[in-house]
Computed example of a mutant assay.
Amino acid sequence: MAVYTVHGPASYYGTDVRTAPEQLVFVRDGFYFWAFVASILWLLWQRLWLATFGYLVITIAAEIAMWSFGVGSGTRFLVMGVIALLVGLEAGSLRRWKLSRRKWRQLDIVVADSEEAAERRFFERWNAKTARDGNRGNASSPPPLPRASLTQSESVIGLFPEPGASR
């Protein structure tokens, strides 16, 4: 199961998400294979201009440094592979960073098998929240994250061994 973060523009926050759901962006957290295999193309495709510039600066600086020290081709390949691996691992964070720079807000976090399932879960929770609040025309806050409820018979891991115990 993948974790998705749901983002919407700042002007979108506080409006009903059902009016323009195509504006929402779902960003998967995890490893992006295409960002690893073709880093520069993936960065350009996602329109991550600052990240593309940073990637070019780092790779060119690494190549110049390895050339000046007379490093062999195997080590050069390994260093470039590590840089590509880092891009693949941080691709989702780079997309979230771009959205935050554009003043987009994170509306929710959803766990699902696919992006389509994440969309379904997000809108189900959002609709449930608006129905619960009795305010169907204007949802002013994102849906609450699911929380586990504990009964008195269940134990709690951490500093307080019993639910409701004195501190």
Results as ranks from 00 to 15, higher is better:
F53D: 15
G134C: 05
F160C: 14
P21T: 01
E22R: 09
A131N: 09
V111L: 01
W67H: 00
T75P: 06
E116R: 00
V3I: 15
Q46M: 13
E154P: 12
T75E: 15
F122V: 04
A117Q: 07
I157H: 06
P146I: 00
S155V: 13
V110W: 02
D113Q: 04
R47K: 05
E154T: 08
E63I: 03
Q23M: 09
N138F: 14
E124Q: 01
R102L: 05
I157V: 12
A10E: 05
F31P: 13
W104S: 04
T15P: 09
L44D: 10
H7E: 04
L78V: 12
V82D: 03
S140G: 11
A128Q: 12
S153K: 14
L41S: 09
Y12A: 00
M80G: 00
V6R: 05
K98P: 14
L89W: 08
G164W: 09
I157S: 07
V17K: 10
A65T: 01
K103F: 13
W97L: 14
W126E: 01
R95M: 15
F36T: 08
S68I: 04
E115W: 06
G54K: 10
L89M: 05
G137F: 02
P163W: 07
V79L: 06
F122I: 04
P143G: 04
G158I: 00
R125A: 03
L78E: 15
A128K: 03
K98Y: 11
V37C: 10
L24R: 02
T75C: 09
E154W: 10
T19K: 15
G137R: 01
A84M: 03
A61P: 07
F69C: 14
S93D: 13
V71Q: 06
A148E: 10
A139Q: 07
Y4R: 04
I60C: 09
A51Y: 12
I83M: 08
G81V: 02
M1A: 14
W67P: 00
M80D: 06
G88T: 01
E90V: 13
W45R: 04
L86N: 09
L99D: 13
K129C: 15
A139V: 07
R136F: 07
G81Y: 02
G8D: 12
T151R: 02
V111K: 00
E154L: 14
V156D: 03
S68G: 03
E119R: 13
L99Y: 14
A20H: 14
E119T: 11
F122K: 08
V27K: 04
L43V: 02
L24K: 01
E90F: 15
S100R: 07
R147V: 11
F33S: 11
D16A: 00
S100P: 12
A128R: 09
T19I: 11
S149R: 06
R125C: 04
G14H: 11
W49C: 14
G14T: 03
R18W: 11
K103M: 04
A91P: 08
D16Q: 08
L150H: 08
R102G: 02
Q106D: 08
A61C: 10
A128D: 06
L44T: 12
Q23S: 05
S155D: 12
G81Q: 03
A112F: 01
R101E: 12
